[in-house]
Design a protein around this nucleic acid. Sequence first.
DNA 1: TTGTATGCGTTATCAT
DNA 2: ATGATAACGCATACAA
Lengths: 334, 334
Amino acid sequence: MTIYDISEKAGVSIATVSRVLNGSNNVSEKTKRKVLDVMNQYGYTPNAFARGLGLNTMKTIGLMCADSSDLYMAKAIYFVEQLLRANGYDSILCCSGYDLNNMKKSMNLLISKKVDAIILIGSTYISEKDEDNKYITDAALQVPVMMLNGSLNAPNVYGILSDDYTSIYNATLYLLDSGVKDILYFHASHSYSTKRKMAGFVDAMKSRGLFKEEYLQYFPGSHEDIPAMEKHLTKLNKKGQHFQGIIAANDTLAMGAMKYARISGLNVPHDLSVIGYDNSLLTSTCDPELTSVDNKLETLCGHLIQTLMDVLGGKDMPQETVFATELIKRGTTK
Amino acid sequence: MTIYDISEKAGVSIATVSRVLNGSNNVSEKTKRKVLDVMNQYGYTPNAFARGLGLNTMKTIGLMCADSSDLYMAKAIYFVEQLLRANGYDSILCCSGYDLNNMKKSMNLLISKKVDAIILIGSTYISEKDEDNKYITDAALQVPVMMLNGSLNAPNVYGILSDDYTSIYNATLYLLDSGVKDILYFHASHSYSTKRKMAGFVDAMKSRGLFKEEYLQYFPGSHEDIPAMEKHLTKLNKKGQHFQGIIAANDTLAMGAMKYARISGLNVPHDLSVIGYDNSLLTSTCDPELTSVDNKLETLCGHLIQTLMDVLGGKDMPQETVFATELIKRGTTK
DNA sequence: TTGTATGCGTTATCAT
DNA sequence: ATGATAACGCATACAA
C-alpha cells in the first residue's frame, strides 16, 4: 500500500495525498475527507524509509551510554527516551561499554544511521587527552552532540551537568562539621564526573588543612561487586589506614562501605559516617538509610532535551548548563 | 557525497561502486582498490535511508519495555542491545510504561518505523484478556515478535522464559522444609510472570495443605518505594496476620521485607525468612545477604537473540522455550 | 567484469 | 486547489 494506491483509489494525484498526509492547508475539506477515508479503509501508513530519504531525517536521536544497567544511566535513559518521544523523536540506543575503541565504533554507527543528534549519557565519554575526544568533536561536525553530565568546549556540543564539585565539597564540609575527621573519597572510575567530585573533596579537606593523599581510595573492581568493595575497605583498615567517614562517588560504592561497617562491627554513623551519590533506591535498602546527594537527574534530562530541541530548531544555546544538587540527609550521617 | 560522486571520481559506474560497497566478488581487485581509495579519501558513507528504501530494511529491531530503569529490564536491555549489535542490528528503544494504551502506541510507532522485529522485554505486555493482546498478534502479522519472559500462542510470536512457576514452587518447598510455616507471597504487579510465580507458590503450599488466601499479598505502591513496602507489611502484622516467611516476586520487594524485619526487631532468618527474585545487586546490600532466584537472564537473552536471528533467516523455530532457574541460597534463609 | 536503466515511496517544485 | 514530474541515494536485473 503506497501513496500511489491511495491516490488511485481516491481519484486524486499523489501530490494531493502527500498534502493530506502532511496536513497542508492547500487542500479542500472535501478531498481531504475522501483521501483520509481511503487511507483508513486500507490501513495505509507512509513508508518511513522513503520519507527519510526525502526529508533526510527519520526523527531519531542516537543514545550512547556505557552500560544501560547502571542505576544512574538506566534512569537517565528512561527520562530521555520519554521526553524525546514526547517531542516526536525516537531513540536508538547504543551501549558502548567503557572501552574507547568501542565508544568510537558506537559513535560511527549512530552517525552512519543518520540520527539527528547524539546524546552521550554519563561522563564516561569525556577524556583527559584531547585526541581521545576527537571522535566527539568530529561527530559534532555532523550533528549536535549533547552530553549528560559531561562537558567539552567545542562547536555544536552542549553539556548539561550537575555541580559535582560543589556537591562533594559541601558534603565533605558537612561531614567535617559533624565531627568526623579522617574521611575517604571512595570511587571506582576515573570519569570526568568522578574527578570533579574528587576535586571537591580535596579542596574541602584542604580548606581545613586535613587533606592526605591516602584518603583518595580507588576501587578497581566491578562497579556492581559490593562484597569486593567491602573487602577493599577491610584490607585498607588492616593496613592501618584509619577513617571515620566515607564519601562515595555513587550509592553502590556506599553500599560497600555499609557492608564494611557491618562486618567490622562498626556503628553507623557513630563509628563511621557514609555519604553516597545519586540518591537511588539503594538509599533505603540499608540500615540506617543512606545520606546521599540528589543529582536532580530528571531536571537535567528535561533541560537537556529542551536544549536539544532548541538547537535543532536553530536557536543559539549555551554550551554548558550546570545544576545545583541537594544533599539528602538520612541516617548514615550525624 | 553520494555513490554518483564516487563513481565519477573513480571513473567507474555507480553499479560498480555499489558492488564494492556490498562486497560483491564480481569486481576486479584493481577497480575495487581504486574505488575504495576514493571512498576513503572523501570519507564516504552510504546513505542509510536510501539503502533502507531499496532493501526495505534498516537492520533495526524495536525494543519495548515498561520501564528501562527497572533492575530486571535494565539488565535485559543491556544484554539484548549488545547481542543485537554483534549481529549487525541496531535497537530502537521504547519505554511504554504500564498503561495498555501507551503500549499500543509504542507498538504502532515501532511498526511504523519499519523495524525488522520487535522484542517485548518483561512479562508486562501479556494480558489476561485476549482482546488486550490483539495489538501484539497484529504486530506479529508484520514482523516477528519476541517476548522475553512472556508467551503468547500466536503465529510469529516467540517466547523465551524462565520457569517462574517451578522456581517459586521449589523455593516455597525449600522454605517449608526449613521449618517455616506461615509464608507470604509478596508481589507488586499482576503481570504474567508474577502470576506464574504466584501459582507456583499456591500449589506448593497446597501440596502441604497449608495454603491460605491471605498469604497472597499485593503491594499497590511504587515498585521502588521500599519504605512503603515495609509499612505495608507492618500494617499487615498489626492486623494480626502472622508470617515467618516472605517470598517476594522480585528483590526490591524483598528489600521491603528486610526493612520490615529490621524495624520490627525481627531476626533474619530466625524469626523471618526472606527469598527474593532476580538475584540482582540488591542481594548484597542487606544483612544478611538475600537468598534469591537467579533467573538466568543472560542465558535467556542469548537464546532470544539467537532465535530471532534464525527466524529472520527463515528457519522454523519453537514458539516457546523455557529455561530453568537456580535458587541462590544466602543468609536470609536457614 | 562492467555499465545502463529502473524501481523503491516519499517530498517538493513547478505548472495549471 | 490540484496535478505532473523531478529529485532523494541506493540496489539490482539486464545488457554488453
